[in-house]
Amino acid sequence: MLKYFPLWPDQASNFAGSVDGLYIFLVLVSIAMFVLIGAASITFAVVYRRREGVEATPIEGSTILELIWSVIPFIVFMIIFGWGATIYFDERTPPRDAVEMYAVAKQWMWKFEHPEGQREINELHVPMGRNIKIIMTSQDVIHSLYFPAFRIKQDVLPGRYTTLWFNATQVGEFHLFCAEYCGTQHSNMIGKIVVMQPAEYELWLNGGNNGRTSLVGTGQKLFTELGCSTCHKSDVQGRGPVLAGVFGKQQLLQDGRLVKVDEDYVRESILNPQAKIVSGFQPIMPTFQGQVSEEQLVSLVAYVKSLKAEGQPSNVAQAQPQQVK
């Protein structure tokens, strides 16, 4: 029966169970409410049907009853809110140890890149049981990456990064959909996510790998090619700030604001360098808008992220929040 009338998608991620739990709870609440309203209205319509000589009993209302049926639903609503918020909090908070993969969406294709440099189109291979974080952006319109079997979805926007994460719990192939309408071939912007045993995944990663550069390596190469390294020196103060160790920290800006150095900030600093000038530097960096593709940006971001601080020069230390105030 269920084969022909499926009610449930596969449960293949850490979120599937909790989302389905809330769903079942809500289905039960809904059935209870619907039966209550339905039974009451049908019963009243039958029992109190109009009869010759029987008048309706005038009733003004009842404050107590009204309070009861405002307060009880409200309490139930708050339970649902809390439950839903807890799951959402989880969904929006990727663990620190997550493997970071990148996705670039365009009309009408998904491009994925593994940290090891493996690239895929409309298909994503992931190891089972590992936390995977996907950092995504779009080249054109808004898309949305959706894995129904994982109960997870996130819109992909042009001009910034959004992320989603999951931990696949079941080996197999599952749907990958674009869920935000994106133009003509929206319903063709689909693919599959392949969950593999970690060992098989390693094999798959190495399978086609003859001398492929890792994502960070690509970024590093680009960093040199574009001439970034002439100003952003790795150890001593250049004309631009040293980038080692800044990722994830707070940065003090020229105009006194503090920003967190995240993927979006790095991206913005490459494309629109004058938007947020680091304190103590001149706005001399040219824009790279139009010169680097979204995929190249992704590798540059990954590279900047990978730079670990060693013997930090003073300007980076100055950007530490505790020293600002």
């Binding site: 105009d255 004058q274 001149q282 706005p283």
Partner: peptide, 20 residues
């Protein structure tokens, strides 16, 4: 170009990309 425009070239606090 904020670095070249007459009105902004002497204003270091008003340097921004053409797009913005």
């Amino acid at each position: 170009d904020t670095a070249k425009e007459e009105s902004t070239k002497d204003h270091p606090e008003a340097q921004a990309s053409s797009k913005s």
